[in-house]
Design a protein around this nucleic acid. Sequence first.
DNA 1: ATAGGGTTAG
Length: 604
Amino acid sequence: MRLLNPLLQCISETRHLLQTKISHFHSKSQLDHHLRNSTHPDSTAWAHCALFKTGFIHDPYSANHLQNSYIRTAQLSLARNVFDEMREPNLVSWTSLITGYVKAGRPRTGLGVYGMMLRETSIVPNSFTLSIVISACSADADVGNGKRVHGQVEIFGLQKEDVVCCALVDMYVKCNDVGSGRRVFDSMSCRSVVAWAAMISGYGQNGQGHVALNLFREFSWFGSETPNHYMLATVVNACASLGRLVSGKVCHGVAVRCGYDFNVVVANALLDMYAKCGSIRCSEKVFRRIENPSVFSYTSIIVGSAKYGYGLALELFKEMLEKKITPNAVTYVGVLHACSHSGLANEGLRYLTSMRQEHGIVPDSRHQNCVVDMLGRIGRLDEAYELAQSSQANMDQGALLWGTLLSASRLHKRVDIAVEASKWLIASKQQVAAAYVTMSNAYAVTGNWDNAGKLRSQMKHNGVSKEPGCSWVEIKDSVYIFYAGNLSSCPRRDEVLNLLSELETKLKQKGYSISSNNHMLVDIEEETTQEMLGLHSERLALAFAFISIPRGVTIRVMKNLRMCTDCHVVFKMISEVVGRDIVVRDVNRFHHFSNGSCTCGDFW
DNA sequence: ATAGGGTTAG
C-alpha cells in the first residue's frame, strides 16, 4: 500500500489537473483561439480533451483547428486520426492534411490524399489547395504530375493567382525545366517578390548564374519592392556559382542596406560566396559576426576553408562540437575533405570511424570518395582500393569513387589497381572512354606499350571516343582555346613549353610536388595520351596567358578558369616562382599578383 | 473564420 500511495496520488493529481485545464476553456471561441496558438503537444492534447468533453469536436471549424494544431506540433498521425473521424471533411480539412504530409517530407502521400479528394468527393480545390499540391510535385521533382496539376490550374481558373504561379515557377525550375518556369513567370501580370525569387533561384540552380544576376538587376530597376532575405540568399548564391566576387560584394552591400546582413541564412550564403571566390578571410569575418551559427554556417565555413589546407577547417569543426552543434553528413564531407587537403590521412581515417560512433552518421559514397582521394594522394593505394571495394555505392556514385581511385593509381603508377578500377567503370558502362584512356595511360607509364596499344584499338573497335577537354582564355578580345595535349594548335608552342618546364623545375626546387599529392597545378582529369607529359589544358592556357601578356595588359579569365580559389593559388605561385608581376581580370575585377601575394585578394 | 508560394552547406 505504501508503494501504491504515490501512484494513486499521481492519478488523482492528473485528474484534478485535467479538470482544471479543461475548465479553463469556457467557450468554443476560446478553445479555437487556444488551438490556433498552441505550439506544444501537451497544450494541444488538453484542448483535444476539452473539445471532446464539450462536444465541439463535431464542429468542423473547431476540428480543423485541432487538426492544424497537431500538424504544427509535428504529430501527423494524430492529425490524421482527427481527419478520419470527421463526418464530412471540408476543403480546409483536406488542404491541411495535404500540407501536413508535404511539410513532413512525404509529398507523395500528400499527392495521394489530393487524388482521393478529387475522386471521392465533389469538393473543388482553390488556390490554397493547388499551391501546396504544386509544391508537393516540386519536392518530389515530379514534372509529369506537375504538368497535370498545371492543367487543373487552368481548368479551375486559378492561373492569375500569384501564389499558384509562384509554386508553378518553383516546380518547373526544380524539375530542371527553366523554360516552362519562365513562361509562367512571363504570364504573370503582377509579380511578387516570391515570384522573382523563385525565377532567379531557378536560373542559379540550373547553371545560368549570369541570367539570374541580370534578372535580379531587372528586379532592382523595375520592381517596386525591395529584396527580402530569400531573394538575397539566392542572388548571393548565384554570385558564388559564378565566382564573381565583386557582384557578391555588391549584394553584400544591398543586404546591409536592407538590414538582412545579420540574417543567418543570408550570412551563410555570403560566407560561402567569399570562400568560393577566394576570399577566405572575408568569409571568416562574415562567419564571426553570426550570433547563433547554425549547422549550415559551420558546414559552409568548414567546406570553404577545407581546400586551403591551413588546418582552419578542423579547428572550426572542434569549435562546433564544443558548442554542441550536431554535425551532419555534409559537415563530415567537409571535414574529410580538409584532412585530405592538409595531408592528415590518419586523422581522416579516425573521423571516418568516429562519425558513425559519435554521431550515428553512416559514411556513404561521398565520404568514402574523400577518403579514397586522401589515401590515393599520398600513395596508400591498397587501403584506398580496399575501401572502394567495401563501398555500397550505386552506379553514379561508384563512377565517382572508382574514377578517383583510377586517377590516384595512375598517378602512383599502380597499374594493377588502375586496371581493376577501369574494369569496374567499363563493366558498369560509366565513364567508359575515360576509363579506357586511363587504363591505356597506366600501361604506357610502366612501359607496357603492347597492352596500351591493344586497349586503343579495342576502344576504336567499340566505337568509344573521348572528347578532349579544353580550357580557354580571352586576351584583348581574342579567345584562345586549348585542347588537352593537342600541341599543334597551341600558339607560341615552344615558349609555352619552356615556361612550363621552367615552372616545374622551380616548383620542385621549392619543394612543391606537382605530380603527386599537391593538387594545385594538376587538377586530375583524364585526358589524351599527351596528358602524360603533364600538359593539361588548364596549365597550357595559363602558361600561354602568362607569356602572351606584356606588362600591364590584362587577361580575362573565362569559365572554368574563372578566378576561383584554385586559380588564385596558381597565379600566386607563378608570380612567385618566375618573379614577374601578373595582372588578371575576371569578369569585373583586377587581381594583381606579385611575388606570391595577391593585392586584391582581400578587399573589405 | 481555419489551409497556401521561395532561401543557405555537398
